Amino acid sequence: MAGDLFGDDAPAGAGDATGPVPLAERLRPRSLADVVGQEHLTGAEGAIGRMVAAGQLSSIILWGPPGTGKTTIARLLAEAVGMRFAPLSAVFSGVADLKKAFADAEKMAAAGKRTLLFVDEIHRFNRAQQDGFLPFVERGTVVLVGATTENPSFALNAALLSRAQVLVLHRLDEAALALLVERAEADVGRSLPVTADARAALIASADGDGRFLLNQVETLFAAAIADPLDAAQLAQFLHRR
């Protein structure tokens, strides 16, 4: 369940820590209820929970650190209300990609299917590109869900912010991260080869990033470790890796 946590049915290769599908991808949640650490948004009283209950989405900006579930929440949100999910990355997309995304959304709207346009790292688009979203958001061609690690007040146009609700995602706390490790162990079918102290140190080292934690867990499962590592051995092993 990571992040992005964060679903689709488990792909082929689940249960094999060294298989072609990364552990973090295999553990992506299958519903909003499976997302850990963001219950203030996804719970019944949270902004996202209320939108789903009403069956009506407004454009939102998901602001939070890496590995907290922004991409997964957006995808599951679309599924929960029966919308088409169209992802873009501002790092890899340009004007042509945006035009195609809007054209596809208009075609789908004409066929009676609404589109949730998810834009990862939306702050990477310049001001003119951000302005390009406005007419499509205003007409309802797309419901825009943007994700950013930067403060939206400084990184996004005021005009775009005025049309979207900013929702803040928290770093995953110790309990949420511990749950991710337990899910990983259940997926692989064995316990993590570390002592209790090393397990606590591993969780602390993630600094609230679920994807980073699961990548470290996968590294440990893939290695041939005969005896459980203590905290010092774990630090040396991961640093060496």
Rank of each mutant, 00 (worst) to 15 (best):
A200M: 04
A178V: 04
A226L: 11
S89E: 11
L229G: 00
V21E: 13
V168L: 09
G37F: 01
A231K: 15
S205C: 03
F125Q: 11
G94L: 13
D209C: 06
Q216G: 04
A155H: 11
E25F: 06
K113L: 08
L41C: 01
G146Y: 03
I60D: 00
L76W: 09
Q165D: 04
G82W: 07
V168Q: 11
D16K: 13
G3I: 10
T71K: 05
A128Y: 05
L62S: 03
L213P: 01
E185I: 03
A80F: 02
L234V: 09
R211V: 11
I61G: 00
M51W: 06
D207L: 12
A178I: 04
V143W: 03
L179E: 15
G208I: 13
L177P: 01
M51E: 10
L23T: 06
R183A: 13
T18N: 14
A78H: 06
A201R: 01
V142Q: 05
F136R: 09
G46M: 06
A109W: 05
G3N: 14
Q129E: 12
W63E: 12
L134I: 14
T42Q: 01
E79T: 13
N151H: 11
R139G: 14
D209M: 04
P22Q: 05
P65C: 10
L220Q: 08
E218P: 05
G13A: 05
A159M: 12
N215F: 02
A80T: 07
Q165H: 13
R163W: 11
E182D: 15
D120P: 07
T148N: 04
L98N: 09
I48L: 12
R75H: 13
P65D: 09
S58A: 12
D16P: 03
F154W: 05
L169P: 00
S31P: 02
F6H: 10
D9F: 08
T42F: 01
D187Y: 08
L229Y: 00
F118Y: 14
E45G: 11
G189K: 09
G19C: 09
A80Y: 03
L88E: 06
L180V: 08
P193K: 02
P29V: 08
M51I: 06
V168P: 04
D230Y: 02
A110S: 14
S58L: 03
D230R: 00
P193N: 03
D120G: 04
F136G: 02
V81D: 04
G55F: 02
A96I: 07
I48A: 01
L117Y: 10
A90Y: 02
L180P: 03
Q236I: 08
V35F: 10
R28I: 06
Q233I: 02
G55C: 05
R124I: 02
G132V: 06
S162K: 13
A110H: 09
A232Q: 14
M108K: 14
A231Q: 15
A155W: 10
T141F: 04
T148H: 06
A176C: 08
T72K: 02
R30V: 09
L161K: 07
A184L: 08
E138A: 14
I225P: 00
I203T: 03
V166F: 02
F102V: 13
A222G: 13
V21C: 11
